[in-house]
Design a protein around this nucleic acid. Sequence first.
DNA 1: CTGTTAGCGCTTTCAC
DNA 2: GTGAAAGCGCTAACAG
Lengths: 342, 342
Amino acid sequence: MDAPLTLRDIARQAGVSLATVDRVLHNRPGVRPDTVRRVKDAMTRSAFQPHAAASELARARARRFAFVMPSGANPFMQQIQVQLGEMASWMAARRLSVDVVTTDVFDPAVLAGKLEDLVGRVDGAAVVALDHPSVRAAINDLVESGAKVVTLVSDVPSSRRHHYVGIDNIAAGRTAGALVGRFAGGRTGRIAIMAGSQALRDHAERIFGFSQVMAGEFRQLEVLAVAEGHDEDDRSEHLMRQLLAAHRDIIGLYNVGAGTAGVAKALTESGRAGDVAFVGHDVTAVTRKLLLNGVMDAAISQNPGHEARSAVRVLLALARGEPILSEQEMIRIDIVMRDNLP
Amino acid sequence: MDAPLTLRDIARQAGVSLATVDRVLHNRPGVRPDTVRRVKDAMTRSAFQPHAAASELARARARRFAFVMPSGANPFMQQIQVQLGEMASWMAARRLSVDVVTTDVFDPAVLAGKLEDLVGRVDGAAVVALDHPSVRAAINDLVESGAKVVTLVSDVPSSRRHHYVGIDNIAAGRTAGALVGRFAGGRTGRIAIMAGSQALRDHAERIFGFSQVMAGEFRQLEVLAVAEGHDEDDRSEHLMRQLLAAHRDIIGLYNVGAGTAGVAKALTESGRAGDVAFVGHDVTAVTRKLLLNGVMDAAISQNPGHEARSAVRVLLALARGEPILSEQEMIRIDIVMRDNLP
DNA sequence: CTGTTAGCGCTTTCAC
DNA sequence: GTGAAAGCGCTAACAG
């Protein structure tokens, strides 16, 4: 039974005061290098672990995070917000609050403006970002201001964001490809791809991964040119109808983004749902129903609850200077079929 | 900007002392019903949230949990232990420690004995349990003693355990069935099932779910009698060899438990790996390799890291009297194929 | 039944 | 550069 050490013990061991140990612990300036060494030695020698609760209590100040999310009716994004709501009391007990800011994330100027607004006003931010130079600059400004920043769902790898919360979209596309290929059986035919826009980083990456697998492992399947439905139901439905009419031998369909209801409508009404292996993204009310009634065969999904919690946990860990449990914060690519619907 | 309320504020509002508020907060006896009401009113009126860090700090006492796990070389169980190790500093910062106790979980008397040993010595325990009357009784004794108990991986639903950390094994079996069925294409043939033992609750449930789907959705596939390889490689390999020799038309294979290396060896050496849709459980070094080289088509998996962390978090939340984030603690049934290998 | 009080281990002024 | 001291909000004795 090892009585846990405290800062006071370390102070005694190093022959300095509490305050000095605290300074060293947080790499604060104003300590002679020699003293720093003595203190650090004492800490490692006795495997000192600061008591999280104590430091949390002592800082007293509440923490403020912001989530910058797309405005509009995207059900996946709404699920993330709902999940944030579920964490309310967890957050309250830790004296941290999050504000959700919705904005048109497709307009770089608007998005960048919203981010600039946050400078100096928050301890951290999670951003569903468009990968664009002015957005990148705004993120860097936020980081510069001392705030912790994580990108959410869609990354801006060239920015100085501290962390990305989301899936590997290339791998997600590959997974979709493997499923469509396998589900299409040994048959020969064409595969349709419907995306929101190839200008969106996540969509482009998914298409890339999907195409890779098709070209490499399913040579008997011919992939059609990507149709862009802008994540809208009507537009997607219209395009899908055209595709189905133009090609009688479509046996596989990959819906890369949203607009799933429209795509499914066109497919169902064509009467060919049973012949087409249909894989899409995310578990929402719409895809859930489609999986259950067999129109959709699988959904590639990233768990919105996990993403919401991960973003909050990572921001908090960054703010506290605690380590991040990388395995815990890794967002997995879920394959959801009728039988493992969550 | 709402300055967070403290117990002291509530005390003032209710016209009582700090200590009384604390008693009410924790439903401790020795407060007049009328006073209780006044205090509770004040708390709800101002949406009071106790500061987690403060209470954690004040209790000072470290917490001790035990994990009771199967001895032996089961790689999945070992992964759980590794993941516990990764949490070491997270736990240290919260002043909690876990001891891993390994034991022969297949012998009810031995397992029950180990559990009885824990009575009075731990604040909580996670148990990979056999569903047997004496184990159930031991779990109930532990709960009686005031410890928090969660079952891990395999449940004992009739016991008084506080929580089960693991997947719905019937749904897992159904998922395996859907995959084998889909991957077998439209072909006609036989499906083999290799299990550890049908006496294990999780195995029995998986087989049940698998059979359900086969009978309901894939009538052209005939399921063979379950072979029991006791989760051992050699035994499983031997049985698998016999099955393959006896039935030339096996086109699907479900490996319910461990012993995967043996099963795969028999399948590979028969030269029929390409013709057989092979689905098993868990992502381990063995199954990872089999997925990558195409012998295995999919693994149904429960994330050992998630289970380890969930068990610790749930025990901690129970011990602290905090609510459990149910969505977060739900263990999902992962479908892992080559392209979404974690 | 209720109140007073002394910490828990760290952070943060403010002195020196 | 360094140290002393006053809390942060809650819990747990102990007194009444």
